[in-house]
């Protein structure tokens, strides 16, 4: 069984572009990426699209489908209203390179600004140990496939280009949280998170959590805990006093 669908695909490059309409076949069980590939194979051989695993694990095929940031390979064609055109646009937050391919180097630049894991010295037997419950906590954040949909949907940089200088975005604030929560890590990245990478800019609207294809609780388990650690560090006199006493003790 197959249907004819109308796809409105944004095409263009660094000089600009616009939506192009394609009437194309969509077969039962297919996802948006399949249909984009069919357009590429039959109607627009030079259509640029980034993809790799087609299984929702490589994070390459991020786009905006009917305005919602999603992975093309995980969006079934059967979820759309029959007869309605489907728009596919590149991620808005990042500069377009060509068609659906964007330049996501902003993310790699932000990643470089986070000091790497710095473990404490090993135990006497030369090993480092972690309890399972501590492993589980940060394991959630390790599910990230770096599709950058959370970065794309975050209005702090999506709608305010000027904030790209001092806001790392949810993915990298989550990375800071992961390192901060790590029982073996010795670094202190809280001043960095507050003063240079912009955790105070986050206003908890949870869009990053909503679009995450790995269903990571980015806001509840990473961003809010990081905000609370900032409060510990800068705004809570009780915690400050406790820290002072412990140091003297």
């Amino acid at each position: 069984m197959s249907d004819q669908v109308t796809m409105k695909v944004w095409r263009g490059d660094t000089d600009g572009g616009g939506f192009h309409e394609f009437a194309v076949e969509a077969r039962e069980g297919e996802v948006v990426l399949d249909v984009i590939h069919r357009i590429q194979a039959t109607q627009a051989n030079d259509l640029a699209v980034r993809w790799n695993c087609k299984a929702g694990k490589c994070g390459s095929c991020s786009a905006e489908i009917n305005g919602l940031p999603r992975l093309m390979c995980m969006t079934r064609m059967s979820t759309f209203e029959p007869g309605q055109p489907i728009t596919v646009a590149p991620m808005k937050t990042f500069p377009v390179m060509k068609d659906l391919v964007t330049d996501v180097s902003f993310n790699f630049e932000m990643a470089k600004r986070i000091p790497a894991f710095s473990p404490r010295p090993p135990d006497a037997d030369g090993k480092r140990r972690m309890a399972q419950r501590d492993v589980e906590r940060s394991q959630e954040f390790r599910k990230c496939i770096e599709c950058f949909l959370c970065q794309n949907v975050c209005h702090v940089i999506r709608d305010h280009e000027e904030n790209k200088q001092h806001f790392a975005g949810p993915r990298f604030l989550m990375r800071i949280t992961e390192l901060e929560m790590h029982p073996l890590d010795t670094g202190d990245r809280i001043p960095l998170a507050r003063e240079e990478l912009g955790i105070p800019y986050c206003n908890i609207t949870k869009c990053c959590t909503e679009v995450c294809p790995e269903h990571i609780h980015i806001t509840d388990n990473a961003l809010i805990p990081l905000k609370e650690r900032v409060v510990d560090h800068y705004f809570d006199p009780i915690v400050w006093l406790g820290r002072k006493i412990r140091r003297k003790g």
């Binding site: 600009g16 377009v96 964007t102």
Partner: peptide
């Protein structure tokens, strides 16, 4: 590079 914000300003998106 021209971002999609620029595309918006040009009215293409």
């Amino acid at each position: 590079a021209v971002g999609t914000l620029e595309a918006e300003r040009r009215g293409t998106r």
